[in-house]
Amino acid sequence: MTPSPIHHPSVQSDTGNRLRIDDLAMMRGGMSLIEALHLRLDAGQLMFLRGANGSGKTTFLRGLARLIPITQGQFAINGIINTADQSALMRQIILIGHRNAGLEHLNVTDSLRLMASLMDMDISQQQIIAALDHMGITALAHRQMNQLSAGQQRRVALSRLVLAAPQTHRLWLIDEPFNALDDAAISQLCDLITTYCHHGGTAIISGHGHMPLRPDATLTLGTKPQGVVT
């Protein structure tokens, strides 16, 4: 297997857009959710993906992660287009879905370690402790995943972002991160995302209603004409 030139951050060209979407259309259950969407996101930008329940927020994020096929158009992340090699494209994203992807029968540390290696990150024990500390859950490091509350499990899931943060070229796709979080966790997450964008990272965050961060762009789904954003 030959190494992908995109993988190493130093070879990363920042000339193009972090995310480029051209004439994108997506369908779900026979319903057209996204039509003729054009979008540009650059390094350091944060986008808020807003919409009512069922408006296609998750579909959109999962489409960018190539979990759901797009019906029309194309997108490119760091210049890697959506029809490119799977692993090349997956090296450009981090997806935090609705589900927390915690391994119930493992402790928090071991579960995170597996998730990190699936994200293609090489991490040390110290980094895990630091990530847990960032999300305020250091005390849970050796607890079983299935003994945690919903909010604690969400914090563990989001601490994957802390581990991934050094790779600032990866587009973060975060599906409704503020659900189940208390105020402290929300502010910790906001800090993390703000810092990530400050260092040139790009993130898309979905949600409905209030957004505690100030996004550079907002894409509202569920309203008909979508036009160009940014």
Partner: peptide
């Protein structure tokens, strides 16, 4: 159920 398969699918490692 808990989304681990989803994370495997978005991993750069071949599924």
């Amino acid at each position: 159920k808990n989304g681990v398969l989803e994370q495997m699918l978005v991993s750069p490692a071949p599924m």
